[in-house]
């Protein structure tokens, strides 16, 4: 009897006690494939914070498809910080619910993106179709695998990289449109997400070239047999920024602004940038890109803003219903 009572009181304390100590933990809501990166970064920050302030902090992670994650935050998931792979999924927190200020991206260095990646090609061993650059992708008989740009941030970057490759070579919008039509004639299937496209290419043996992030490519070659594939770097590609932001409304409500801000700043520290490099993410903090110059192939990278004005504009013109992407399939 006594024992039962004790365990009852204990469980009551556990349940009721959690919110009381809530400020010692923060929640980072992130996209799907940042898991491995944060598994290394979070313990480093916990240690840093303990050394600096003596406080023990817990960082909780939530991962999932990026738009779905952003929707959860809008719908009330108590995220102190949000870390995404495109600014569109953070902009929405301002547009719906006003959780963050409009100019959130100006608050941290390098467009609030401490790390970045880019779209590269993965081809089968020996590069049997001799794919070297964007032009080779639209040759008849080449199968291109990429996730659906309408459902996947990864796919969106690949699409915009393909479009921008034409514009950056001096092509007009009409040239780019012509190119992108030929491009999607060579796309046999559209998986909903990046990992699905990887599976189709690697396990099902479909297509001749996979378009995906540089850091995803290194994961594939490390984990799924590097001897079966080769990485091809196109002459030009897109800079895929991974922006981070405080979710002001939640952080103020939970009184966690100080530690959350420190967590975000920590992304730019030497230690965190080294962890990013380990996960094949391009470091973006001042000085870091020079320091790790020999780790990454030098590429001409253009930003979304440079070619498309802004992410919001790119989304509206290309991926909204009836946009350029839809017109490829509906004549």
């Amino acid at each position: 009897m006594n024992k039962t009572f004790k365990s009852f009181v204990f469980s009551l304390f556990v349940t009721l006690g959690l919110p009381a100590f809530a400020e010692t933990s923060i929640l980072n809501v992130s996209y799907d494939v940042s898991r491995e990166f944060y598994k290394d970064l979070n313990p480093a920050f916990v240690k840093y914070w303990k050394d600096k302030t003596g406080e023990t902090i817990t960082i909780k992670q939530s991962h999932g498809g990026s738009s779905k994650q952003a929707r959860s935050v809008i719908d009330g998931l108590q995220a102190d910080v949000i870390t995404m792979n495109q600014s569109l999924d953070i902009d929405i927190l301002h547009e719906r619910g006003k959780l963050i200020p409009k100019d959130w991206q100006k608050r941290l260095a390098s467009n609030s993106a401490p790390t970045a990646s880019t779209t590269v090609f993965l081809v089968r061993k020996g590069n049997p179709k001799n794919i070297r650059d964007w032009n080779d992708l639209v040759r008849p008989g080449v199968g291109i695998i990429l996730p659906n740009p309408k459902t996947s941030g990864n796919g969106r970057y690949s699409y915009l990289a393909a479009w921008g490759s034409v514009i950056k070579k001096g092509g007009s919008d009409a040239d780019a449109k012509d190119y992108i039509h030929k491009f999607f004639k060579n796309v046999p299937i559209l998986d909903a997400g990046g990992r699905g496209a990887t599976t189709s290419f690697v396990q099902r043996g479909i297509g001749d070239v996979l378009l995906t992030f540089e850091n995803e490519v290194s994961l594939i070659t490390n984990e799924l047999g590097g001897d079966r594939f080769e990485v091809v770097y196109p002459g030009i590609s897109v800079l895929a920024e991974n922006p981070i932001s405080l979710v002001d409304k939640v952080a103020d409500k939970r009184n966690s602004r100080k530690v959350s801000q420190a967590y975000l700043d920590f992304h730019y520290s030497d230690e965190a940038q080294a962890i990013a490099v380990k996960h094949s993410l391009r470091p973006r903090a001042e000085g870091a890109s020079d320091k790790y110059k020999d780790k990454f192939k030098p590429l001409t990278l253009f930003t979304i803003d440079e070619v498309f004005g802004s992410w919001a504009n790119a989304q509206k013109v290309h991926f909204a219903d009836g946009g350029v992407f839809d017109q490829i399939y509906v004549k």
Binding site: G65, S67, K68, A70, R71, I92, R96, N148, K150, T151, A192, Q315, F319, A320, D321
Partner: peptide
């Protein structure tokens, strides 16, 4: 439907 949700529509 999922595609539309992904675009916050």
């Amino acid at each position: 439907i999922i595609t539309k949700l992904e675009q916050y529509d």
